[in-house]
Amino acid sequence: MSDGNIPATRTEIPVEVVGNRQGMFGGRGTGDTSGFGGLVAPIVLPGPSSRPYGGWFDEVADELEGALEEQGLDPADAIEKTVIDRGELTFHVRREHLLQVSRTLRDDPALRFELCLGVSGVHYLSDPGRELHAVYHLRSITHTRLIRVEVTAPDADPHIPSVVSVYPTNDWHEREAYDFFGIVFDGHPALTRIMMPDDWLGHPQRKDYPLGGIPVEYKGAQIPAPDQRRSYT
């Protein structure tokens, strides 16, 4: 084996661990009878990709980074990492810079992501400091492209700037994410609950909010609500 085949230095790839999977079946309590109940495997989100990304991904990334630089912003500062996974391009943007990045994505002639497809909240309960993710999908009708922008916020400080001033369509989407996840979108014109009644307590789609089902009673038997049953994940 020649020396050229051995990588010079091992670069540490920062990975995002969002939890652990235990045992063979992911069963909790006494569910795992396989004898492998002690196995622990981390759940790792797809890590950052390195250049070249391939296809039009490089073009978009170059344009975005160039445009941000022109505005006096260090791309490495604004964009935490760029992930290519399953043929989809994701920019992980630091929340301070979300507004500027989204405005650039919309207005730069080479980018032109005119259509925002809303925001989807995801709650990673065991990812300390980055529990709440807000995931935006942007579509460019001009260039027929689709990208994803992901922003995180800790549970202790669930603030993310609102992009309603850039994409008015996100008005209701952000209200929905607030209602279900408790993400506070700063700068939203009227951040109120949209789906749940106004006096509802809690944010029902967070992972620490129970499903809220009731046990169903049959003759002589009770079936617990789906989240209370013994089950394998």
Partner: peptide, 26 residues
Amino acid sequence: VGQAYAAVESPKGELGVHVVSDGGTR
């Protein structure tokens, strides 16, 4: 593990689905 977005043109417009998996059966 990962996330994906798929969209179809429903009679009402773009119907998009964002799914996230943690490597489990759900």
